[in-house]
């Protein structure tokens, strides 16, 4: 048999008591006079804090001392600066993104130009080859023409 925790029953009893007491508390505070008292308490406390703040500011003003309000106002400036940096950062991101898009488009265009140049180059090579062939043919024609002319000039000699 496992060892029993001597406090288990204590825990159970306390749980029951807690539940019971909470139920009782819940019922007992559900009354309007207590709500009215809380209302008065909140009002009184608020008035007291307001007066305390006013006096604190007044005293600090006479003594020319900065108060927590002054510090808070200075911090607000820092928060504003932080917000502006955030906005700038976002704008830089947008710029980066547009640059990235523009670079992509440029790269695409450059790629197309490169392809086109390659195509022209190969066409040019083909044309050059054909031109070389044509030149050869022309040369051959020239040679033939020369031969024919020679034959025209020396036919009598050969016939006799």
């Amino acid at each position: 048999m496992s060892e029993m925790n001597p406090y288990d029953s204590f825990l159970r009893v306390s749980e029951m008591w807690e539940k019971g007491l909470n139920g009782l508390l819940f019922q007992s505070i559900d009354n309007n006079p207590l709500i009215q008292m809380t209302k008065v308490g909140i009002e009184a406390n608020s008035r007291y804090i307001e007066r305390l703040k006013r006096n604190r500011e007044l005293m600090a003003n006479y003594m020319n001392l900065p108060t927590k309000n002054d510090v808070a106002n200075a911090v607000k400036q820092t928060i504003q600066a932080e917000e502006k940096i955030d906005i700038l950062e976002e704008k830089i991101w947008n710029l980066q993104e547009s640059f990235a898009l523009a670079t992509d488009a440029q790269n695409k265009m450059l790629g197309e130009i490169l392809e086109f140049t390659k195509h022209i180059h190969s066409e040019w090579q083909k044309t050059s080859l054909e031109l070389a062939k044509l030149s050869e043919i022309k040369n051959e024609f020239e040679a033939m023409k020369e031969l024919l002319q020679k034959e025209k000039e020396e036919p009598v000699l050969t016939a006799k």
């Binding site: 559900d30 209302k39 909140i42 608020s46 804090i49 307001e50």
Partner: peptide
């Protein structure tokens, strides 16, 4: 919270505006 407190909050009997402004 108990019913009467809920009603007090909903009707505005209990209001924390001045309290929040003060603090």
């Amino acid at each position: 919270v108990p019913n009467k407190w809920v009603k007090a909050l909903q009707k505005g009997t209990l209001n924390f505006d001045r309290f929040a402004d003060a603090y």
